[in-house]
Amino acid sequence: MSATETTESYGDSTASATRITPGNALRPEDIQLQQGAPGEAVAQYALRLGDDALVLAQRLSNWISRGPEIEEDIALGNIALDQLGHARSFLSYAGLAWGKSEDDLAYWREEEDFRSLHLFEQPNGDFGVTIMRQLMISIYQHLLYTELLDSSDETISAICAKAVKEVDYHRDHAIMWTRRLGIGTEESARRMRHALEVLWPYVGELFEDEDLYDELGDAGVRPSSLRERWDTEFAAVLESADLEVPTGPFALCRGRHGEHSEHLGHLLAEMQVLARKHPGASW
């Protein structure tokens, strides 16, 4: 094995921007070592995607040791781990613009500095609510990351190349469970209708554009452009599960502006408590 091959296959301390190409597995550690920092708009965009994934990972990780079957502890844990991986990549990349690490961004920002959407921070509820939240989000992330493969920003595109394969699996998992629970028993169907009802208000925010997209150009994807495809796919899954798409109104949410539900503060308090007790410590 030549020296070049050795460094290629480990990539720890030798990562460079040239390794960052779509399809090449990209780790947060690689991104931290990257030379080129993103511009402000791309950094803001990466921060949004990273916050969504981080908040969802934090929520899902709470299922570990509490699932209805050990197999689901593993499956939900896996999904949480994937989301955490995406979050670490996006946040590491965003942080390059401001000289901050993924941990600076995760542990040392205040609630109003988080840019996550309300749907991602909704409590786990019962398994039905978690699955419905997963269905809504994984269809959304799958559409979004697929589009972002063509992002003019190479790092965003490379992160999504890895992430899209994983969220494709998350989507499969959510679809299969939505069908099992929608069709399974009267109780499970009732719980799924309840899950739809409690989560539906937060779907609208997924597709809201903001001024940032004018600056992003081809680096990002306008959320509104995903709406039609999401509606079609979501409706098809619900139909196959004997469930109906709700018709209720969407809530006014401004997560992208740092205005969150009452839930995020608690989630962050728990996530950040230990790190904040020991400023400057390394772990």
Binding site: R179, R180, I183, G184, T185
Partner: peptide
Amino acid sequence: GAWVREAAAAY
């Protein structure tokens, strides 16, 4: 988790 397992079996 009982309702989930029952639903999966019924499905």
